[in-house]
Amino acid sequence: MAIGIDISQIGVIASKEFWDRIRNRWVVAIAIVFAVFALLIAYFGSAQQGTVGFKGIEVTIASLVSLVIYLVPLIALILGYDAIVGERERGSLDLLLSMPITRLELLLGKFFGLSAALSFSTLAGFGLAGVLIAPQIDLNSLYNYAGFVISAILMGMAFLSMGVMVSVLASDRTRASGAAIALWFFYVLVYDLLLLGALVVSGGQIGGDFFPYLLLLNPADIFRILNIFSMAEVKNLYGLATVFPETLSDPKLLGEIMVCWIIAPLGIAAWRIE
């Protein structure tokens, strides 16, 4: 028999998760890491070319994307994998579930609380860097930068959702952490190489047309497309404009697919936790 969702119970769990991360300075630490990286890349990103100083927001964002695409999924997966299996293994899950709360509410509470912590760190870290950079860029560039921060938050939530799913499915913490690292390895390091390999091996014959759409099966790639294709200058820089269908340059559509990536693993977790 179905039981309605009690938002206030989700709120209690979410707020505990969020404040736990504030109290143990996790949020501050991650925010500082993001801010420092963003400022370093903005001001010293061109040091290899023999110059230092701010070179423009497009180049900065392109460099930040390369960094964030490694860092945020890793942080999100590490944050998420422990959520349920950790409670189970420590022995605190039974007590929690003896409260007037459903498993689904617990799951959603965990997810939203951790999402809030990760989003807050991302926003604070890159926001601080943005405030410092802001005087040197125009409004349009600021808009692009805001897009970068929002898409980084969405990508974080997508990988957090995967981490929480792993946490529900895994039988113990060790397996959960292994699965989380494997997911990171697959989506961040291996996936693109596999696509590229398939393309090269088949001489471009197989998957050539729907190759760009395969990128949508990876939230990290969606994040990359979102940020690279929103800026004409970077698009030309990458030489991708020719191979990419126009429909996939629509930030709204890409955003929606990203949201699907947040909902889908969470949906599997919700189904399995019951």
Partner: peptide, 12 residues
């Protein structure tokens, strides 16, 4: 559930 109190064995 609101009317129940539970003390599990080996509470954490």
């Amino acid at each position: 559930r609101r009317r129940i109190g539970y003390l599990p064995e080996n509470i954490v």
